[in-house]
Design a protein around this nucleic acid. Structure first.
Lengths: 204, 204
DNA sequence: CGAGTATGTCATCATCTGAAGACATCGTCT
DNA sequence: AGACGATGTCTTCAGATGATGACATACTCG
């Protein structure tokens, strides 16, 4: 069981209604742990192959609380995507520094669940809608705007192409399907990937 | 591919005479139908979300025959990948004509199951091994050889990168996650994709 | 024709999974 | 202190799924 120091007095100390961080019973904390575990597992194994029991185990929280706090596994997924969306800065795939940031972050935390949704067919419209929205807002749209500003033809198509290619690379890297790709340091990969994505814009 | 003489099926394999096409009972035909249906469904919905009952329904064959003829759902998957592998020509991602062929083919039949395996983590080593082997043999290795012959640095990494990007684009296209990408004609997409993949080789 | 086997059909099992509910424990407020 | 709601734990349910085996039917061969 998750055991994070007792400190029942800490709870009493704070004047506000907000529960103290060390509380033994803290719904907000449980929700957070669940979302975090869900984000990792969904990204790592996909939606279907992740069970609520696994999520609960990793989070150190009883799986029944998923139903209580989120309603269902799917709504937990949506919550995870929203969190992933929340702490993400809009990325510019063509900017090498931004790209480096993305790569390093994925090395640490893995790509979010939405990347899989971009690439996998899903009959679950809600799930796919949320993930698509996230990707579109974060990756495609900025790129599309940039292309449009540069008066490149077919900006949207080019942006989607680059995003899809990027998703493929990132996912393949974390899936371990390709040996060298998975093991390459971000430093070695970065220039190659940058050149690749830069080619989504016509050569000047 | 359809039948590779099995031990116990002496009657069907005898005399080298293939069963008549109109036969009401034809194990080879049933196997073929199952593999075909499985290939489509696995590619379309992934391994986990495809049920043996669905496969049987689409094939017009009783799902119990999956167990009889292949042993298990997973071995059916392996059989499907082998068939996909069998009728595939090694593709050259940098050659525009070959690329066109691939795109058109995927438009008709969808990418095979192995593309998903490239991008999805799987705890099922057997399944993933088979799919990875297929991709490697068909996409990565030829490209790698080509790069090596051209004395490009890091040929393997570059080849894997290009293959991953290609997988991402093809999967995203068939998943429908990106609107314009999914709807674009192969003709419009081809030059853009070709330029993109060509950038896996350093500019000359 | 008739036996024997290959093939197909059906019912069923064991397991897993998401979800729901009963009950227990904790924290707060009066 | 005591009541009441919030939070957590455990059990259980209903449905789905992969797999299995018994039985039925068709084909081949003597």
């Amino acid at each position: 069981m998750t055991e994070a120091g007792r400190g029942r007095d800490g709870a009493a100390a704070d004047g506000g209604k907000a529960p103290a961080p060390g509380r033994r019973r803290d719904a907000a904390r449980s929700r957070e742990l669940l979302v975090q575990a869900a984000m990792e597992l969904f990204a790592d194994r996909g939606f279907e192959r992740t069970t609520t029991r696994e999520i609960g185990e990793r989070a150190g929280v009883d799986p029944a609380l998923i139903a209580r706090y989120f309603g269902s596994k799917m709504q937990l997924y949506l919550a995870a995507v929203r969190v992933e969306q929340g702490d993400a800065v809009p990325a510019d795939l063509l900017d090498e520094d931004r790209l480096r940031g993305l790569l390093e972050r994925f090395d640490r935390r893995g790509p979010g669940p939405s990347f899989q949704a971009a690439v996998l067919p899903s009959d679950n419209t809600e799930v796919q809608q949320a993930a698509r929205g996230h990707l579109d807002e974060r990756l495609v749209q900025p790129l599309c705007d940039r292309f449009a500003a540069e008066q490149v033809d077919r900006p949207r198509l080019r942006a989607e192409l680059a995003a899809a290619a990027f998703a493929g690379v990132v996912l393949a890297r974390s899936s371990g399907a390709f040996g060298e790709l998975a093991e390459a340091e971000p430093g070695e990969l970065l220039p190659l990937l940058h050149d690749l994505l830069a080619a989504s814009r016509p050569a000047r």
